[in-house]
Each structure stands twice: as C-alpha cells, then as structure tokens.
C-alpha cells in the first residue's frame, strides 16, 4: 500500500469499535482512508461524536485501530519495531483547550519540556524552544514569565509552542480557536498558515467553524458516523451544503448567500466561500446587468 519515497501520512482502511464485548457495539471509525502529503493544509469537520477524536488519536499512534493501519513516510506505525515515541514528535498534537495543561513555572521551561522529553540535548532543546516561542509571536518579555500571568490567547500560543518545539512535520490542531475572540481567532489561524507556508509543515485543522476551514484549508475531510463521506476541495465539499446541514454541520455563511442570490436569478459564483470571493463575484454580477 505504501508507495516508496512517499512523504506524509496515509490512513489506510481504519476501523475501530467501542464496546466490542457488549451488545451496544459502536463503530467509531468505519473504513476510513485518506492521505496527507507533506506540506498540505487539511481541514477535518464532523459533528460531535462523528469519530474525529478517535481518528486523530490514531494518527500519532495513541490508539491502535481494530483493523487497517497508518503509514508515516511509507512505514507502518503499528509495526512492532516502529519508534512511536519519535512519531509523536513528528506528528504533533495540540488538544482542545491545551492551555489547561500548562504546568511549568516559566514559559521557557514549559516549552523546553517536550523536546527534552524527546531526548534532545540541552543546547538543541533550548534552541528549539526559543525558535518555537518566537514562531508563535510571543514577545521576549514572556520567556521568564509564568504562563499563568499571560492572557488566555497568549497561554494558548505557549501550548502550541510547546508542541512546535518538538519540530513536528505534521501539526494536528483540535479546535485551536475555541473561546478566542474574533481577532484572536484570525491571528492564530494566520500564524498557523505562515508556519505551513514557510516551513512546509503539514497541518490538520479540526474545527467546528466552517468559515475557518473554508478560508484556510486547501482540502477538507468530512466524517459522519465514523465514515469519511467527503475528501475534496472546500468548494466541492460545500457544494453539498444541504447534505451537510442534515448531518448537523453547515456551510460557510457565504455559501448560503451565494446560493440564495443564484436562486433569485443572479449570475454569481456559488463556490465563493469567503467575503472576499463573494464581494468580487457579486460586483461582477451587478455590473453585467
């Protein structure tokens, strides 16, 4: 299955059931397959209970599938002699509300913890931590401060920095903007986009905000009842906005606006997903008449 020389992650026919022994078997993942190539920015959506968390925990081998497997850079991560500890450095995971897990006395100590734990020597650890704190845009004064004296948005950046310090090749973020104010959301997502662009780090963004995945991801995976029902560009996925709505999801606000206009006879582009794209399309349609 794994191509030789393939860089990135392949989820191959993943199946997982909860309550295997009881009559209430629950298929959390039902034959899920997809790839994330090195450098891609992929979005993952699905309502609560659709299997997102189970899937995400499998991608860095925190959970083992009942059948199917995960390949990373062409190697089966569940093979007996595979170095799964090293994998967890390569596939970094930022959990929901990660700032609740901060514990160290200073920001710098906090961010050093991961790389040290991965076995980097002191010099590497400190260089890596320094670079990570700079990357998330925290000012120098923060280094010696207690994480608890920072604002909520800054604390979340510290938590992200502590994963970045392990130099992941694929960064998985589970609802990274939950609870942040609108500008805080934008700043965080812009920062992640820069990391993706400048360092070719792949990103898997798990989000309940259709507007966010539409604006930032180049491909979107949609999970429903453990099955991967769409794996396509944002425009193609959100063309199914009526089906998504039935599944407890939605499309970005602009999809509804553009489809409403189209239905009333205006010649607009229904695949416009952001206010920027919608603005241009509507202006063109109005000038045409």
């Amino acid at each position: 299955m794994a191509e030789s020389g393939f860089r990135g992650l392949i989820a191959d026919h993943l199946v997982y059931e909860y309550n295997k022994e009881s009559s209430q078997r629950l298929r959390a993942l039902d034959d899920v397959s997809f790839t994330i190539r090195q450098g891609e920015f992929v979005g993952l959506i699905g309502h609560t209970g659709s299997g997102k968390s189970t899937l995400v925990q499998m991608l860095n081998a925190l959970m083992k599938p009942d059948s199917g497997t995960v390949y990373y850079d062409g190697r089966d991560v569940f093979e007996k002699d595979y170095d799964r500890k090293a994998l967890r450095g390569k596939v970094g995971e930022v959990f929901q509300y990660p700032e609740h897990q901060l514990f160290a006395d200073t920001v710098f100590e906090e961010v050093c913890f991961g790389p040290r734990n991965m076995g980097m020597d002191r010099k590497q650890t400190e260089l890596s931590a320094y670079a990570a704190i700079k990357k998330v845009g925290l000012p120098d004064e923060c280094f010696d401060q207690s994480p608890f004296d920072l604002s909520g948005g800054q604390r979340r950046r510290v938590a992200i920095a502590s994963v970045l310090a392990m130099k992941p090749e694929l960064l998985i973020l589970d609802e990274p903007t939950a609870g942040l104010d609108p500008l805080g959301r934008l700043e965080l997502l812009d920062m992640i986009t820069e990391l993706n662009r400048d360092s070719a780090m792949s990103v898997l963004l798990v989000s309940h905000s259709m507007e966010d995945v539409a604006a930032y991801a180049s491909r979107i995976l949609v999970l429903d009842k453990g099955r991967l029902i769409y794996d396509d560009t944002p425009a193609e996925v959100f063309a199914h906005y009526e089906e998504l709505q039935k599944l407890g999801l939605a499309a970005p606000e602009m999809t509804y606006v553009m489809n409403g206009l189209k239905a009333a006879g205006m010649d607009v582009d229904t695949s416009a997903l952001t206010p920027d794209e919608a603005e241009e399309s509507i202006l063109r349609a109005l000038r045409l008449c």
Partner: peptide, 30 residues
Amino acid sequence: LRLDVPQSTELAWRLKKRGVDLPDGVLDRR
C-alpha cells in the same frame, strides 16, 4: 475592539463601500 460583525453584515458593508446601494446594519443572510 478585536471583534467582528456577522459575515453577511461584513459583505454588505464592503459592497456598500464599493458603491452598491445597500442599507446600513444588514444583520443576516436573508
């Protein structure tokens, strides 16, 4: 103030700035 407006409000505001005759404070997509 680090806030925003609903996306439909934002779009209406931008279109208005570019000369489309729309009312102020459009609240939703409808």
